[in-house]
Structure formats: C-alpha cells, structure tokens
C-alpha cells in the first residue's frame, strides 16, 4: 500500500508528464487559454488514461510480450509480438477514445457537452501513448501499480494545464516584448514552472 501511494505522489509531482517528460505539450500549449476549458481537457485526459493504460498493459502482458501467449497453449510459448506494440497501443487508444465518445454522448449528454470537443484531441495526445510506453519500459508488475501510475500521471497533467491556464489569464495584463508574446512567453513560463516542480525531486515518502 505504501509503495502504491509513493508511486502516485512520484507520478504526480516528480515524474510529472509535462514538466519532466514534456508529454502532451501540443494540447498543453494550444488549449490552455482559459481555466475552464483546461479543466475539461484535464479531466478527459485523466479519464482516458485510467481506462487505456490498464488495457494496454493487459494486452502487452498477455498477448505481446515474448512468451506472453503461453497461457493459450504451450506451442505459442516462444512467440514474440513485442514489435507490434506501438501499432496495438495506438489502435487501442484511438478505438477506445471513439468508444468513450459514443458512450458518453448516449448516456450523459451534459458530460458530453463538457468534454465532447476534447475527446478526439486526446487520441493524439502524447501523454496517453507515453504512459502506455513508460508502463511497458519500466515493467510494472501488477494491474494496481499500472492503474495508480496512470491516475497519477493524469492528475499531474491536469494540475499542470490548469496552472498554466491560470497564469496565462493573468499575463494578459502585463507588458511583454511583442516578439515574445504568445508562444515565446508560454515556453519560458513552462520552463520556470518546471524548475519549480524540480523542487520535489528526491523527496522520499
């Protein structure tokens, strides 16, 4: 239990998707104009991550890894499909995002109105595929670890995009040299926020 909590805190603050790995930067920079839309996108990312990361992990463990198919029959024990993992992961994510979109549209129109436009964007958000690939690379062993890691990464991303949106709302009122306006200052802001987040490094819980 302790190690799971530790993993969660690590993935929110220390291994933050945006500030440590720069994943999901495109939508992070493009959609963070107001706090309200950022919150919507952040929640959608958490939601999709929580669903796709465990599924991708299951697919990887029981179908793709070298020897993973031994549970079907012993003749498949030395099949190694790991080279297909990129293709399968992205297909799972794209299909799942589509499915979630249809499901939410049918059963919860208010939620669909809040998240609807963001859902298609998420299929190509690097953070989602990034989590699937990190899970594969770091060889997390149990489903609960994977779920906690996915939740933590999602929450970290949510925090980051909400924070930058809040800063951007305020920065409208300050004098910035014209060539630096917009994209330039967003980069420098994100850099400074990342330096602040590095303060969490090395914390042991």
């Amino acid at each position: 239990m302790d190690s799971l909590f530790n993993l969660f805190v690590r993935s929110v603050f220390i291994d933050n998707m945006i500030f440590a790995y720069f994943l999901g930067m495109c939508s992070f920079l493009a959609v963070s104009k107001t706090v309200k839309t950022s919150v919507g996108l952040g929640i959608a990312v958490i939601f999709v991550l929580l669903l796709t990361a465990p599924i991708n992990w299951l697919v990887d463990t029981y179908l793709l890894k070298p020897g993973a198919m031994a549970w079907i029959s012993s003749s498949l024990a030395n099949v190694d499909l790991s080279y297909l993992s990129f293709l399968i992961f992205i297909a799972v994510i794209a299909a799942f995002v589509q499915l979630v979109e249809m499901f939410v549209e049918k059963f919860s129109p208010p939620l669909y109105n809040a998240l609807g436009i963001f859902l298609p964007l998420i299929a190509v958000n690097c953070a989602i595929l990034g989590v699937a690939l990190f899970v594969q690379e770091r060889e997390y062993q149990t489903l609960s670890e994977v779920t906690v890691y996915a939740a933590g990464s999602g929450v970290g991303w949510f925090l980051a995009i909400t924070a930058i949106a809040a800063i951007k709302e305020k920065i409208k009122y300050s004098h910035i040299p014209p060539p630096l306006r917009g994209l330039g200052i967003s980069f420098i802001l994100t850099g400074l926020m990342a330096i602040a987040f590095m303060g969490f490094m090395g914390i042991k819980i």
Partner: peptide
C-alpha cells in the same frame, strides 16, 4: 536539466520573431 530546453526554445522563438515581424 529538462526545464532549460523549454527556455532555450522560448529564446529561439523570441529571436526568430524579432527578426520576422
């Protein structure tokens, strides 16, 4: 460290935009 990549790109954008108004 990772944050400096962001700041370096920020500066590149600044330079590029001050040359191309």
């Amino acid at each position: 460290l990772p944050p400096m990549a962001l700041i370096t790109i920020g500066v590149i954008i600044w330079l590029q935009r001050s040359r191309n108004r």
